[in-house]
Every structure is written in structure tokens, then in C-alpha cells.
Design a protein around this nucleic acid. Sequence first.
DNA 1: GTGGTCTAGACCACC
DNA 2: GTGGTCTAGACCACG
Lengths: 128, 128, 128, 128
Amino acid sequence: MNFQIHLTSDVPIYQQLGQQIRAGVARGRLSHGQQLPSVREMSRLLVVNPNTIAKAYTELEREGVLHTRKGVGVFIAAPSTELTKTARKKRLQEKVDDLLTEAVYLNYPLGELKDLIETRAKEYVWNV
Amino acid sequence: MNFQIHLTSDVPIYQQLGQQIRAGVARGRLSHGQQLPSVREMSRLLVVNPNTIAKAYTELEREGVLHTRKGVGVFIAAPSTELTKTARKKRLQEKVDDLLTEAVYLNYPLGELKDLIETRAKEYVWNV
Amino acid sequence: MNFQIHLTSDVPIYQQLGQQIRAGVARGRLSHGQQLPSVREMSRLLVVNPNTIAKAYTELEREGVLHTRKGVGVFIAAPSTELTKTARKKRLQEKVDDLLTEAVYLNYPLGELKDLIETRAKEYVWNV
Amino acid sequence: MNFQIHLTSDVPIYQQLGQQIRAGVARGRLSHGQQLPSVREMSRLLVVNPNTIAKAYTELEREGVLHTRKGVGVFIAAPSTELTKTARKKRLQEKVDDLLTEAVYLNYPLGELKDLIETRAKEYVWNV
DNA sequence: GTGGTCTAGACCACC
DNA sequence: GTGGTCTAGACCACG
């Protein structure tokens, strides 16, 4: 799997990497037991400070997405118990509200917003 | 209208307030010409330093959401959209992608996401 | 490029700095990708509180003139115009009226004013 | 002569009035010896706090544009010695540079800027 | 009373 | 090292 970092983005590098690994797991491109590049290796691949890679890995390990075996390497962890439907809905609703606020503020018609979502959704892999 | 600040959140206070005011306008709870609590009053209400309130107000003023009159107070500005269609679409697409990534990660079906958007959209005031 | 602050001026320090950076970009003395002195360094150079420098930088960042990368520094952003033609014309017309009022008040002939504009315009980099 | 105050403008009221009186003098609509409405009268006409009117008058008196005769009223003063050509040019150049910076930044063609100036200039009365 | 500017200094996030 | 956030408190401009 390929990872891409945008240095100009205002999203911190370690979060970009974390998000891409999470997305990879969610889309089935990274699966349980698969090994990730080591901190140093990933650092060379992305041309990013090793500390930054380590920070991303640490965060993902804390979340239960990754599992580090000392002296061996970094691996994708077993899928954890999922959030309840209600919890997931609540988390999404915040982002939905944020999107709608921006759309109204920009005077962007709801119909066109739906079209935009429809179009972009094709870029994603929906398992459900 | 009520405002609420979560001091534990990692979203800066001034952005929390800004987002709540923007959302209030988008939902029609705050409308053109209406006066907001003064910097000092809002500072007392939220138990936050006046400078922090001023920072939120200044940002919204630059965005065209608010209008301040020195020595008088702060008011909701008349709506206006000076951005080109392309710029507005670009700005929304970022938020759409953000939303879709989260939905995929949470294994939330696209159909249900659309329903959620449909439902929430009724809370907002669409001029177009 | 040199920056100079007049403490006696009634124009706020952060606006003086902002205007000088904008002018530097418009005249091609500062160009895309170039790094500016850090907040602390500029603070030492101009003998001004770091917060005041940060305020200038933040404003320019929101305008799209600068781009800041946390932990790295502040850079001149890629040029972009997201405003509609109408909005841009409106913004310029205000400044034109301001100029004409002053010229009339000073009894400065329109012909000579045009000459002055013509001459000064050569200092700027026109992409269109 | 009529005076008009825009309460929504970000230019202070006392400056708006001052500017209009100066412009009136520059355009010959107000001339030496002519009486202006008293502070109280002007306050009623413009629906503005008397202190604000007084502040405008005081500033104009300091500049030598007005002359107050206690218990009698406020009058347009005799035309003062004018600034030298060089001084006037220097003052205008600042505004010209400001305008050009904004035009370049907005990617507004020089030709169209000149057209805009030409068009707006017709609204003004040039004595020279 | 209102908002705006500036300073001083603390603490955090990022690389 | 970099920039970002927040507080505290002073002083000014405006009506």
C-alpha cells in the first residue's frame, strides 16, 4: 500500500499518516497480521522525520490499530470491538452539521451538495 | 441563543465559539442585524478571557459573518458570498471527503449517511 | 527584504507589517515559496512583541498571502484569487474613490494623477 | 449642502463628517465665511451624538478648515496656504501604491483599473 | 459603556 | 527550534 504526505496541508504529518493507515484498514487494504514498514524505513520512504513516524505509530498502537513486537516489527492488530451504531451516528452527525453549516454559509444548494457527495463517494470503497 | 464551551476539547475555544455562531446563522437562530453579547459580557458568560472572545469575533468579522461597530457593539452581518463557484465547491469538497473517510472508517453505510444528511438538513435555512 | 515600523504612526503595527509584506509580493520582491523570518526573529528585528508579529502573519495567512507550517516556519503562498470579478471590482472601487477624493481635496490635476499611477505601476508585477 | 453618515461603515462617524466638509470646501460647495450648522443642530440633522459632531469640528478647526466664533457659530475659514507640489505628490503616492498593491493581489488588469479610475473620476468635480 | 491594540509571559503541538 | 493558544492587564479610540 502507498502512503502520501502533503507537506503543505495544515493537517499535521503524523495525523495524515495515521488517517491513511486507519483508512487502509477500513478498506481492507491492510489486514490483521500484516507487517508495516519500520519507523526508520517509513521515515526514508516518506522523507519525514523519524520522530514524526514514531508519533503516528504510538498513537495508532494506543488506539489498538497497530501492535508493536519489540525487535521484530510493527503489525496490524486484530480488529477490535466496534463502536455501537448510536455512537458512530453521533460522531458522524458532528461532521454532517459542520458540512451543512458551510454549505448554507456559502449559499450552495442542497441538491448540488448531494450531487457532490454522490460523486465523491465513488472514490471510496464501501464494505457495507 | 446559548453558547457552550468545552475546555477539555482539543478544538481551540475561539474556534468553538466561532463555529457555534456560524451554525446559529446557518440555522436561522441568529439573523441579520441582531446584536451579540459584547466581548466583555460574553467573556463573563463563558468564563473565558476577553481577548479570546475578541479573537473569535475578529475572525468572524473577516469572514463577513459579523460586523462590529467600535463603541457600539457586535452584530450579525448581511449575508454575502463573494467567492467564485469553483472556490466554494473546492472548499466543500474537502469537508465532504473528510466526512466520507470517517464514514468508511466507521463502516457506516452510504445509504444511511445520506439519510442522516437529509434529516439534519431540515434544521438549516436554505436560501437556494 | 527590509521591513520598517513607525511606532508613531496611527496605523497599527501589525497592519504596517502586513501591508509591507503584501506590497513586497505585489512588486515581486517576495515570491512563492520564499521563507519569511520566524515570528521570534521578526520580533527581534523590529523590536516588537512576538504576539503582534503573529497577528500580522495570521491575518495574511487567512488572506492567502502566507502559508505557515507549524514547527517549520512561515512562507509566501502560491497566488490565487477566489473572489468573483464583481467582488474584486467593488473592493478596488473603494480604494479608487478614496484616492480621487484625496486628489480633489489637494487640487491635484487628474492628468497628473494618471501620470503618477502610470509611473508607479512599473514597479509592480502584473500577471494579466 | 447635504451631509450623509453611514453608520455601518468602518470609518468613524466624526471622520466621515470631517471628510465631507473638507471635500465640500475642495469642490467649492462650501466657501470662506459661510456658516455651518451648530453642533446641536448638526447633531439633530444627522441623528448623531453631539460629542461626535464636536469632535469633528474641533479637528477641522485644528486643521484650519473651520473657525469657531464663541456665541456666534461655526464658519468656513479662509483658505490656508497650500502644501507644496512635492508634498502633495508624496501624500498621493502612498494611496496610489496601496491601490496598485491591491490590484496586483486581486489579479486585476492595469488596463481595467485605469478604466475604473476614468469612470469614477467623472463623479468628482476637478477644479484644475 | 463599547471594541482595538499591544505587551508580557506561560504552556502546548509540531518537527 | 518552529507556530498556536490563552491569560492578565494596560492604554487608546469611539459614541
